[in-house]
Each structure stands twice: as C-alpha cells, then as structure tokens.
Design a protein around this nucleic acid. Sequence first.
DNA 1: TTACCACTTAACCAACCAGTCAACTAAACA
DNA 2: TGTTTAGTTGACTGGTTGGTTAAGTGGTAA
Lengths: 203, 203
Amino acid sequence: MGRTSDARERLLEAMMELIWVGSFGSTSVDHICERAEVKKGSFYHFFESKHALAMAAIEHGWDAFQVRLDKAFSVSLPPLVRLETWIKQLIAEQVEMKAKHGRVLGCPIHTLGSEVGAMDDIFQKVLKGKLALYLRYLESAIRDAHAEGVVQAPDASAKAKIVFSYSEGLLAHARIWNDLSILDSLYDGVKDILRLDNSLIPA
Amino acid sequence: MGRTSDARERLLEAMMELIWVGSFGSTSVDHICERAEVKKGSFYHFFESKHALAMAAIEHGWDAFQVRLDKAFSVSLPPLVRLETWIKQLIAEQVEMKAKHGRVLGCPIHTLGSEVGAMDDIFQKVLKGKLALYLRYLESAIRDAHAEGVVQAPDASAKAKIVFSYSEGLLAHARIWNDLSILDSLYDGVKDILRLDNSLIPA
DNA sequence: TTACCACTTAACCAACCAGTCAACTAAACA
DNA sequence: TGTTTAGTTGACTGGTTGGTTAAGTGGTAA
C-alpha cells in the first residue's frame, strides 16, 4: 500500500559521496537533500537523523565493497593472486574516484573513523566492525600464502596488521597529497613487507 | 606601547587541543574562545579567521614537536637508537594525551589532513610541508642504519616511506579503536619492516 | 473504484555559525 | 603623570544548522 520511492537509495548514495569527498562535519542535511534531489521532509521520513543516515550509508557502501572483496579474495585463487587482485582493485577504485571527483579520496571508513575519533560510540562500533572484517581477508590470504611457502609470515595475524596499517596510511597519504602516483608504491611496499623478491604472481 | 597579553598563546593551544581531540569541523569559534577564556572580539583581534588560527596553531604545535624530533633523531646517537627513541617518544605522547583527554588522539596532522582532504589548498600546503619534513628524519636515520649495516634498506627513501605510512596508519587505527595497546605492535612492526631480528638497540 | 497510507512538499523553528563593531580599559613608555 | 595604543568587551548581524510539522498527493492493493 501507498506509493513507492527510490529516495532512500538516492539519500544513501548522496551521503556516501559527500562524506567520502569531504567529511561528515562538512556535510549538511541541506547539501545531502540537494544532491539526492529530495526535500527535507522526505529525508526525515526515511531517516531519523543525519547520524542515522551516515550509519546506513556506511553499511550500504560496505555491502557493495564486500562483494568486490569476496571476489578478490576468492579462495579459488592462489593467495598471492588474491593479494594482487586486492591491490589492483584498490587502485582502480581510487583512479575511478579521482576521475569522477577530481580528488584522491582514500578509504572512507578510515577517514571518517579518524574524524569522529571515539566521540561517537555507536558510530565507531560500526566502523570498527567493518575494519576488523576487512583485516580478516588480508589475514587469511597471508596465512594461506605462508602455508604455501611463497611468503614469510609465521605470524600471519601480525603480518596482516602491518600490511593493513601500511595500506591505510598510504591511502591517507595519497588523499592528503591528492596524488594517485603515491599508490604506485603500494605494490612494492606489500612485496617488501611480505618478503617477496619476484612478482606477486608466481610464474 | 599598550598592554600585553597571552591570549594569543591561549588561543593557539586551545585550537590545537580541540582540533586534535575532535576535528576542525567540530570545533567552533565559540568553543575555542570558551576554552581559551578569551572573548570573541579578542579572537578576531589576533586572528583574521578560524582558518588563520588553525594554520597558526599547526605551525605552533609543529615547532614544539620538532624540538622533540631533533632530540630523538640527534645525529650524535646511533641510528637504531634514534629510531627507538622516536617510537618511545611517539608512544609516550599518546599515553600522555590519553591520560589527559581520555582518548587516543593519533597524529593531528594526518587526521586533519585526511579531514580537509584537498579541499583547502593553503591548509593542505602547510600540512604537506610538515609531513614531508617528518619523513626526512626517518629517511636519514634509516639511511645511516643501512650504511652501518645494521638494517636492510638499500633504498632508504622507499623504506622510510613504508615505515612512515605504517606508523601513521597504526596511529589512526589506535585513534579509531581508542586503544593504546594497538601501539605496542609499532616496535615489532618497524623491526619487521627494517629486518631486525634482535632488539633495535645493539647490545 | 475507492480507500488507505507511503511518500511529498514547503513553511517553519530555535540554536548555532563565523565574523563585525564601537566603546572601553589599562599597561607601557616618555 | 599623562598619552598612547594594544588589548578587551558584549552586543550585534545575516546566514546556516539539524530537525519539526501539518497539509497534501498519488500509487497500490482490495
């Protein structure tokens, strides 16, 4: 009963875009509504607050992201290929966003998490959950790679955390410099951390 | 002539504190004035805008930080001791801030830089300058360590960038998790990246 | 065909935002 | 001691903030 609408989806996507390009603090409800072509009353019909929309937008964005993660880290692939695909996807996404918005955007979860700090408990809980999930993909691939003997990582969990922090740090660096070429070193950096002399892909 | 005042310094410190604990966006001129116990009129007597104060506060905070960097990375010390002192200082600072504000704050320049992205050119120029300067300390110590043969870093510049991105990523991680213990792995992580089996300090 | 209700619309609110200003105060120096 | 002037004060502005409300509109399902 009643009419249908895609305003909810348009709001989710506008919010994600604005938070990613700018920040949570710099994104106002009016801006979101304008971008989504939705009137303010409709906004509050679908979401009870700006915070609630932000949470839903992160959740929504993550779901799409996880599909790509599942593909990149498919257990059907050799572990080194998984890692290589992950890096390729990551860079491709940044290239796409730079083409779209003229800026290197980095990782939205890390950027948003840094911004709000531990100021908002519920918010932070969601972000921490996603980041922990992300880390698991890396850890599993590195553990498998170690088991195959193609990588030196007796403590796969510790190694994954290093790779993860490094990649997030580098993404933030690229965002601050607004320079895609900074990401060129990601491939070699991960190789270095994992002690791979040759290509990630075995010949 | 005319009276003197330390209101300028109080404003600089209040701004630094509020930006570091929260964010630029969440910090209002009223908050700054309240924290610094300065009336708004006085604020605009010393600084022409909130932006201008933020820039001055970063500059002011960096100057104090650089004194500690110069001490930690003193060429009089063996390169590995420099790196160890750097990590010790970094952690000590985070411990101090957590005791003071109840939160792990991470690196203010990286956090602020991520927040404003490339949206504010002048802002970003200052932040990039500081980060580039910071990187030089690491690079020099790693190059010296390699020359002494105590570290495996034929490309000291590349290695320094990895260590730097890793440390910034880890700091952001600790901020998001609001957990000091995350920083415990910094020591081992840097050792791993630099290929040091034993303690950083030679026996 | 009609009744219901999910959705839409625009006007509205109090609080807050960055920034202005003119009158005022007191410390430093001659 | 008197003059200068850097620093102080509080009231003010116009615009924006997140959020509310009440009256409508039109698609859907019975």
